[in-house]
Design a protein around this nucleic acid. Structure first.
Lengths: 140, 140
DNA sequence: CCATCTTACTTGCGAAATGCAAGTGAAAAA
DNA sequence: TTTTTCACTTGCATTTCGCAAGTAAGATGG
């Protein structure tokens, strides 16, 4: 449920369209994957991710994800230069979406990381519960 | 499982990246929604969909979806001008992805079509089975 | 405390993608 | 035979992307 912020006017009220407007680009979901599955929390880590996002695009996507309430940004108490990016509850709720996208691609394309895929296939609910729990633990 | 066709070189082998490269734009998933949930099968129907896709973008997206094996194109036997677009098995396998995206947006944003959402929430498996069955029936 | 390094960005700019309006050609309808 | 309909294509202005090169604030080493 969005609060304050004048809604930026959607093309339609369809829930799928809402998702697509927030996540429908070539980078947002990869950033979320890195946060959710690889535990990335800093700008530098995202930059070093294999796909190679450009610095200006990364900055833009992080701003957008924060504006949508999918991630939060806070200063690193142990290093004033660093910022810590973290998933909100709304962000971690995207785990089922990412999971289904991974399973779909694994079924129909030649992809890597079969270990992860097998884990998802074996027990999807347990996989999701584990992700959620890891997230809950480092929220303090 | 892709056959022939020189793979167009992905940014990475990650299955999520594969999905994002095929579907990560502002229109592809909306077209698939229209096919899957609204039963749209022609160019004209897609054009008239509420979000208002441009004609050149629509033509491009249909070509891409066909190239990825997500949809098929065939001439309408009863009208030589028309083409019939249909979901392949790979395409209908995206139903869980669309469903999770709809449920996520419905939970975290103000969206319409609550009837559809309630149906998905009530029994996700049955909802998916129904979609799959409707698809199987009109494959002849 | 001063030079150097890191980190998280911003800026500039060419290339690609998008959006809009106006065609086009083949087939169906009137 | 003229008019519509359908599935596009073409041109062109606008927006977004991607790469390289900065920059400012904070940490680090001597």
């Amino acid at each position: 449920m969005p609060v304050g912020k004048s809604a930026p006017k959607r093309r339609s009220g369809c829930p799928l369209n809402a998702s697509v407007e927030m996540l429908g680009d070539r980078w947002s979901l990869l950033i979320l994957r890195d946060m959710m599955l690889r535990g990335f929390r800093s700008y530098k880590e995202f930059l070093q991710s294999y796909e190679g996002i450009a610095t200006n695009i990364l900055a833009d996507r992080l701003r957008r994800l924060e504006a949508y309430g999918i991630i939060t940004t806070q200063p690193d108490p142990s290093d004033g230069r660093k910022l810590i990016y973290a998933l909100t509850a709304k962000g971690i709720d995207l785990a089922p979406v990412l999971t289904e996208m991974v399973l779909w691609a694994a079924r129909h394309e030649e992809t890597e990381n079969q270990a992860l895929v097998k884990q998802m296939q074996k027990d999807k609910q347990q996989f999701l519960a584990a992700i959620r729990q890891r997230w809950a633990e480092k929220i303090p």
